[in-house]
């Protein structure tokens, strides 16, 4: 936890990892250090208080939430909102769990498919020299640049034409391209750092090209695969615009759109909405916290070169 931005590929022993931490200036330089602490304190409050208030609100009854001045701490703490959302027996809970499952299913599938497609592509970009390689690579990267909305209309028409509107297939197909450029870029970095002799040795040892890749190269790039997978999963989990446009039947909605629906149906049920927001954030936050270093790597790779 204390030295999180490390080169996770250190196990290949060929990457140069910068000294993870540094202790500068032994003597206290009062002013600057206090300024630093001030900034951190401010940012901590700025970041945390809205989330704290979300949790506090979610523990109130509807009546308690709609009071002025607000109850800083609920007079009467209730888990009613969570119970309602998570019990499959009542209508609200049933719906919410359906959204949750839809989100989960779409995110997992698009993540897996994304990795399956990105791995060979990144490997090819790293290992082979073929005409047009550079151009292809940059066109893949450029995907990062384009706004979702630009693609929305043609994709909508295309999905309509393919008969995929209001199916999860349309979302999976779209989402897997979100992570793709980044995954390819990130994984290419990993493969660049794996000596080609390892594969050659494996092939001489009796492996086919694929076996050499599968048994030797892939395990060495697993940190990269994990990193790209988390990134892709979080992106898919949080995606809203396409889900909003492509889906319309209630049982197909994913969480972000479901949340909006929930809001328009129960316009004043703020505690319920806060509880739903909270539940919706749990998977990604847990995933992020557990695999933090991989996620950070996914974000920063490529932009930072030593």
């Amino acid at each position: 936890m204390s030295t999180p931005i490390r080169n996770t590929a250190a196990m290949t022993a060929t990457t140069t990892s910068p000294a993870p931490t540094r202790r500068r200036s032994k003597k206290p330089i009062g002013g600057w250090r206090w300024a630093g602490r001030g900034i951190l304190a401010f940012l901590l409050l700025f970041t945390a208080l809205p989330m704290v208030w979300m949790v506090i609100t979610s523990l109130k009854t509807q009546l308690a939430a709609l009071q002025y001045p607000p109850q800083w701490w609920p007079n009467e703490v209730t888990f009613e909102n969570y119970v309602q959302l998570l019990s499959p027996n009542n209508a609200v809970g049933h719906e919410f769990l359906q959204y949750f499952w839809n989100s989960f299913y779409v995110s997992i599938l698009s993540t897996i498919l994304g990795v399956v497609i990105a791995v060979p592509a990144a490997y090819a970009f790293s290992r082979f020299r073929f005409p047009g390689r550079q151009a292809l690579f940059f066109s893949v990267l450029l995907r990062n640049m384009f706004p979702a909305v630009v693609f929305l209309m043609p994709l909508f028409l295309m999905m309509k034409w393919l008969g995929l509107v209001n199916t999860h297939g349309s979302l999976i197909l779209t989402y897997l391209t979100f992570g793709l450029p980044l995954s390819i870029w990130l994984l290419k970095g990993f493969y660049d750092n794996i000596p080609i002799q390892l594969e050659q040795a494996a092939r001489i040892d009796g492996a086919t090209r694929f076996q050499a890749f599968f048994h030797i190269v892939m395990p060495l790039s697993s940190p990269g695969i994990i990193a790209t997978a988390i990134y892709a999963f979080i992106m898919a989990w949080n995606e809203y615009v396409y889900a909003l446009t492509f889906l319309n039947s209630k049982d197909k909605l994913t969480l972000p759109v479901g949340l909006q629906r929930f809001f328009s149906e129960y316009a004043t049920n703020w505690p319920g909405l806060m509880a739903a927001s909270f539940i919706m954030s749990v998977p990604v936050v847990v995933l992020f916290l557990v695999l933090q270093k991989y996620f950070v790597r996914a974000l920063t790779e490529g932009a930072v070169k030593s």
């Binding site: 936890m1 940012l43 901590l44 970041t47 945390a48 809205p50 989330m51 208030w53 979300m54 609100t57 979080i234 989990w237 949080n238 809203y240 969480l255 972000p256 759109v257 949340l259 909006q260 809001f263 703020w270 909405l273 806060m274 927001s277 909270f278 919706m280 954030s281 990604v284 936050v285 992020f288 916290l289 933090q292 996620f295 950070v296």
Partner: peptide, 20 residues
Amino acid sequence: AVLLVPYVISAVAASYVWKW
């Protein structure tokens, strides 16, 4: 990690929280 949480959570959830 705490500072990174807003970046990770859904913008829809964040929008409703701030709307509130």
